[in-house]
């Protein structure tokens, strides 16, 4: 026993090294699981405040662009609202019976505090949290397209998994063709993502629009993801290799809207009853 202790003491540096590396591996594995509830991320208050300060300085340099984007979005929404109003006045067809269906998505606006596009696993920190009704699993969109989904929330802040994350998958459909597949980033270029599992007979063409399918109840149906940049079909592959140019420029992201799906629980429990947990 004494010799064993002596041995351990002799090589204490090596054993500390092994111990710490194993701790790190454990942390990395923990962090890779979706909805891990670790405290050590940028949603904790101290880290968030530092990032907020940093973003506050950076924001001054992009105020002009942010203002222009917001004004454009305002104008768009106003014209949509006007069209809707006109239709209501003219023919009163639109009278939703089921208000639950009509109000199934709520939108909460949030400011981006920290964002990256150059890593393989990119995260976005925003300034809304549990107290504002944010929950893990909610979708984040911007005025131009899908952004990501919520991973961790603290009281005042939330960390989103960006679409630019090699493990993040979003169910999408090609709008013109109605075939569905999965968008997943390959870590290479922040302007493009890949669309997988589009079958051989789908014949996608360059310029087709890719939108979210709404199959997994995270994203509402019809949120723009991007436009097909190129599509190739290799001889033996059952699926197309499709490159989609993203609608959202992630390096300019300033505000996002978090989508609260009020029917998500109902839908998930129904799926669970039908298909079971071991999907």
């Amino acid at each position: 026993m004494e010799r064993l202790l002596k041995f351990i003491y002799e090589y204490r540096a090596f054993f500390t090294f092994i111990l710490l590396e194993l701790t790190c591996v454990w942390l990395i594995v923990q962090n890779n699981q979706f909805q891990s509830s670790t405290y050590f991320n940028s949603s904790n208050r101290l880290a968030a405040n530092v990032l907020d300060f940093s973003q506050g300085v950076r924001e001054y340099f992009s105020l002009r662009n942010i203002n222009r984007d917001l004004a454009e979005e305002n104008a768009n929404l106003r014209s949509l609202l006007d069209q809707r109003n006109q239709r209501l006045l003219s023919d009163r067809i639109f009278s939703p019976k089921d208000t639950v269906i009509a109000n199934r998505f709520e939108y909460i606006s949030a400011k981006v505090m920290s964002n990256s596009t150059e890593l393989y696993k990119n995260y976005i920190t925003v300034d809304r949290g549990k107290l504002d009704g944010i929950e893990p699993g909610m979708a984040a969109i911007s005025s131009t397209g899908a952004v990501g989904k919520v991973k961790v929330v603290s009281d005042h802040f939330a960390v989103l998994i960006s679409l630019l994350h090699t493990d993040e998958m979003v169910s999408c459909i090609i709008k013109e063709k109605d075939y569905f597949g999965t968008a997943q980033w390959d870590g290479f270029d922040a302007r493009y993502t890949n669309l997988r599992y589009i079958p051989r007979h789908a014949n996608p063409t360059v310029g087709d629009t890719v939108i979210t399918s709404g199959f997994n109840a995270v994203f509402p149906k019809g949120i723009l993801v991007g436009v097909i940049h190129n599509a190739t079909l290799s001889e033996e592959s059952p699926f197309w290799d499709i490159k989609v140019s993203l609608a959202q420029d992630y390096s300019k992201l300033a505000f996002v809207e978090l989508v609260k799906s009020n029917l998500k629980n109902e839908r998930d429990s129904l799926v669970e009853v039908t298909i079971g947990n071991n999907r």
């Binding site: 710490l20 942390l27 991320n41 696993k121 920190t125």
Partner: peptide, 17 residues
């Protein structure tokens, strides 16, 4: 560093090494 990069354990792993 990991706390701010949201990459739990990654920088720690490399730095310890």
């Amino acid at each position: 560093i990991d706390i701010f990069y949201n990459s739990m354990g990654l920088h720690a792993f490399a730095t310890v090494f």
